[in-house]
Design a binder for these strands. Sequence first.
DNA 1: GTTAAAACTAGAACGGTTTCAGTTTCGGAA
DNA 2: TTCCGAAACTGAAACCGTTCTAGTTTTAAC
Lengths: 189, 189
Amino acid sequence: MTGRRDRKKAATRKALADAALELFLERGYDNVTVKEIAEAADTAIATLFAHFPAGKEALILDDSGEREASLTTAIRERPQGTSPLDALHAFFAGRAPFREDLPAEYRRRMDLILATPALWAYARTVWIACQDTLAALLAEAAGVDEPDDSLHVLARYVLETPDLASARPDRAAALAEAFAHLKRGWPAL
Amino acid sequence: MTGRRDRKKAATRKALADAALELFLERGYDNVTVKEIAEAADTAIATLFAHFPAGKEALILDDSGEREASLTTAIRERPQGTSPLDALHAFFAGRAPFREDLPAEYRRRMDLILATPALWAYARTVWIACQDTLAALLAEAAGVDEPDDSLHVLARYVLETPDLASARPDRAAALAEAFAHLKRGWPAL
DNA sequence: GTTAAAACTAGAACGGTTTCAGTTTCGGAA
DNA sequence: TTCCGAAACTGAAACCGTTCTAGTTTTAAC
């Protein structure tokens, strides 16, 4: 399953992502070209795009379903007596950029993303892409078969909230405010 | 004020926008290059970007503050006894892509936008850019001095709703559903 | 009529992305 | 062990949107 080939492939991918992060942190996202990244990782540009077909942004914001998985656990394994919306609030409040006490490594990375419009926009689209999954999870939590319009709307608002709250002076307060209103708007959850 | 120079400038701009729309409708947004558009309008590529610095998408989605103005009237001049949220609901329900009985000219254009991810995404960002304006309008309607987190959240959710509702099978129903929940979530409005 | 600003121009350059044809590397079947 | 085919990788070319540059034309104002 994990032969030499797969190990080498993973190594190439990691070399690319590492080189990209280092260069971005050093000189800023917009001042680094994919050619430089490929050279730093000692690969061809075509190889870079073979590993990250979603483009330059994906070098930093590697998705691979990790988001959907974390959302799923956040809802499915929430403490008893906790509403799905409270679980989601806690989920986001415990992550960057809302949680403050994170290792410097994470923080620098998040600061880069927050400071780079292209990266922040891409991060948002990756979260929004979870809308169907989240709507299904909410339906499950509500004991409904299929998510209807109402749950899709809620899922979208929830996933939009981090982007929105991050732009406010007090991010955590804005996040809490948003979830408070969502709870009022969807009292059944 | 409107001398020959301004008239010619406006003509050039219109020639570019017209050529773009015609070519896009004919062959699809992604199958038309800016070079072709410039040639069809008999201008240089540099001229195209001088008129539409926001890029290729702006050839179709010309902004120029028209959106903010229409939002402002929708809220300020709403019928007495109508809540701001009802006014916004009516505002969006009366526009493409929610209103169905529009001239074929508008419809083809909107179908193009809906069918082209780049255009649809750009349209969304232009609407989202009205967030501060809408938050201020909501504050004004609520008799508050400055919009707080709560109103900024609401403004964002409202502006996000058309994009969201358009992706649902019954657009108008999804729009209504979303506004119903927003009204519950912000009962003061 | 002169002048200066503004519109326009052609062409080069840049950066992200795709494509292509060809090479190397490896896993698995024979 | 050998050999075959798939997969990773490569360099180079091409494409497209966008910006830049240096220079030309047009027009408004004095």
